[in-house]
């Protein structure tokens, strides 16, 4: 499967180490279709390929938006791209968030760090189909206030009827008037019907591990908790085995899984 050339249309700095790019097909093709939770393999010529979740609005498919944290040689090269530059794209890949299953229910979205980016398309989808969903609770944790992604949108979403947005950081100076503490703690302050809720979690595995018991304790069953797994994905089509997780491939069978499906591996150390 060959990468298709895409041009960088816009570049936006989000935080010190994170940026968003919107990409358009170099071929002039008008549409880029994806569903929330899917990812693309982005090829930075001369450096390599990285799997990056799509962070844009699935209903506005004229461009493909990615929010990328610069953590290694390939993402650092992507960080230096300017509008007009070309990258290779393969995708979209992966099992998406279960937005259909969540219809008619409350929705709890729990994000940590860059994990906010793969969940943003879910929020766009819900806002575009507001009458199909109950209450929406977004609980988001970041390292410091300056690491918070999409601040303006968080503000906007928090004033949307039926939305509760709670943000917390691990550390802050005394100018910060928001929450300081860990994401799982926010769950106790969230207002939703736990018996009729679908939860979607994306962030560091340890954050997910501590959030899940808080949800199950209040009645969200494991089959209604979905997590996005992070493993070293390389081919994205289940051939190379880099992302093998027990009997499944995160790239092809995930990255989104119901917790009930991966529970037996999830709590196993070093797995």
């Amino acid at each position: 499967m060959e990468p298709e050339p895409y041009h960088v249309q816009t570049y936006q700095r989000e935080t010190d180490d994170t940026f968003s790019v919107s990409l358009v097909p170099a071929s002039g093709k008008k549409r880029f279709k994806f569903v929330p939770g899917q990812f693309n393999m982005i090829y930075a010529f001369g450096a390599g390929e990285v799997p990056i979740s799509i962070s844009g609005n699935p209903a506005r498919n004229e461009t493909c938006i990615h929010t990328i944290r610069s953590v290694g040689p390939t993402t650092r090269l992507l960080e230096a791209l300017q509008p007009g530059a070309t990258v290779g794209i393969r995708g979209p890949f992966g099992v998406p968030w279960p937005v259909d299953r969540a219809r008619g229910k409350d929705l709890v979205l729990i994000a940590g760090g860059i994990g906010m980016a793969p969940l943003r398309p879910v929020i766009y989808h819900v806002l575009g189909n507001r009458d199909q969903y109950g209450r929406v609770v977004l609980l988001y944790g970041a390292r410091t206030p300056k690491d918070i992604l999409f601040s303006a949108e968080l503000e906007q979403w928090s004033s949307t009827k039926g939305f509760q947005v709670e943000v917390t950081v691990d550390t802050a100076d005394s100018h910060w008037n928001g929450n300081v503490g860990v994401v799982p703690k926010l769950i106790t302050h969230a207002k939703f019907n736990s018996l009729n809720t679908v939860a979607m979690i994306c962030g560091p595995e340890i954050m997910m591990r501590y959030s899940i018991p808080e949800l199950t304790d209040i009645g969200v069953t494991e089959d209604r908790i979905y997590i996005s797994m992070e493993r070293s994905m390389k081919c994205a089509i289940g051939f190379c085995g880099h992302c093998q997780y027990g009997g499944i491939f995160v790239c092809k069978d995930g990255p989104v899984f119901p917790y009930s499906q991966v529970r037996k591996f999830f709590l196993r150390k070093e797995f």
């Binding site: 990812f39 990285v50 990056i52 040689p73 962030g203 340890i206 070293s232 994905m233």
Partner: peptide, 20 residues
């Protein structure tokens, strides 16, 4: 428990999704 999780600085330790 919360304080221990907080000092782990989990967002700094986030691994990349791919072998970079």
């Amino acid at each position: 428990r919360e304080a221990r999780l907080q000092v782990l600085d989990v967002y700094k330790l986030e691994p990349p999704r791919a072998l970079e």
